[in-house]
Design a protein around this nucleic acid. Sequence first.
DNA 1: ACAAAAGTGTTAAGAATACACCCATGT
DNA 2: ACATGGGTGTATTCTTAACACTTTTGT
Lengths: 224, 224
Amino acid sequence: MTGEYVAPILTVDSVIFQITDGQLMVLLINRAAEPFKGSWALPGGYNAAGETTTEALSRVVKAKSGIEVAKLKLVEQLYTFDTVARDPRGHAVSVTYMGLGLNLEPKDSKTTQSPQFFPVKQLPELAYDHHNIISYAHDRLASKITYTNAVYALLPELFTLPQLQATYEAIFGRQLDKRNFRKKYLSFDLIKPTKQFVKLGAHRPAQLYEFNQKELTSLSRSFD
Amino acid sequence: MTGEYVAPILTVDSVIFQITDGQLMVLLINRAAEPFKGSWALPGGYNAAGETTTEALSRVVKAKSGIEVAKLKLVEQLYTFDTVARDPRGHAVSVTYMGLGLNLEPKDSKTTQSPQFFPVKQLPELAYDHHNIISYAHDRLASKITYTNAVYALLPELFTLPQLQATYEAIFGRQLDKRNFRKKYLSFDLIKPTKQFVKLGAHRPAQLYEFNQKELTSLSRSFD
DNA sequence: ACAAAAGTGTTAAGAATACACCCATGT
DNA sequence: ACATGGGTGTATTCTTAACACTTTTGT
């Protein structure tokens, strides 16, 4: 079997999220080539032989958006889709990743393709089944932040509880009760208060907190 | 880029679980070829061009164990690993799937490789990183059965509550309280009693239940 | 003094846990 | 009659949910 084996095309696609102005945003590029030339799409591209999927991810995201994957605070594999190929050779397999970061600035250049962050709530028409992939990623994110400290990857080192709550609200797409949110979140012992406060306007200053751990940590879910 | 593109080797690997004698069992084959010739391993093999990953899965599992993937009651993609190749050509990418079934009978033949079910608690030495893959699959299964009806795929159409509970216990690896288990599980409204009973020995007969739905259904998890 | 967001506690309802005896059957 | 596993209920603790006022600041 080894002799005549021909592998399918392998691609990687990335769903990169950040929070801007209290909104969950996702990175899209404008396709420069057929198919779907001119449509918005997730940054993605070929995975070559000899390259791991995360290596391909870094290369492709950098080339298409100017963003360094190494600067993302969390990268997680999502799902592998059997899909149509980017080129006419037919069937392809795409490994998708979710990345979370903060203050990411896509840079346009000769090789990039008008990379921009769009609010997840108001996406343009997208190429391929990229709507589905974004919605899969969004679900995974919403789920992940309920049983891990993954939000750390969307926040600065020091943040306030209203900021934390707003991040949860942006992801869940609904309002949470302030007192219950604080009580519950603090009970997880994932974050600790600092002695610093921020004054952000004509109102009481907010206390700054930080995460105890800046790597992914899971809480337990129980059954019995 | 399209011209000189060479794809990495793509493989599929399967973690097929079933319950036998109250134990969680996983299907392994004995590798007939190098590398790891003579070691136990998960059934897996090449994914050729023009073949979807689930098509490759069916073909490979059938060839190596005689088991029809179509007869599994639930198949779910797990994760895609960057891994060493099965042959000397270097880097490969492996898409792994979990399958759940009942009364599966691996058949040995010329093309198969001594396929057998082993208790997950007493595995032999395994090739590659297959221990990790099994443990990843086991975790996913344990998690999945806490928020979905996925156990249906490990049980017959009609089953008793003690059977259902034993299945949960086999997967969690710990005992559950009988009264609490029943109360909680029945509150999910996933199953309904039938009018039938089974007599299994010198004791009171057990009532048979059935699932309302035999497709994967999720319960909700809450945050606020 | 007023507007604006930060911060704080209590009560009620629901979920999870711990726990022990009776029931129906075969031998 | 006894051994075996099936079946059932209650009290307690913990978790979740609903809800409104005071604090600190800038203007």
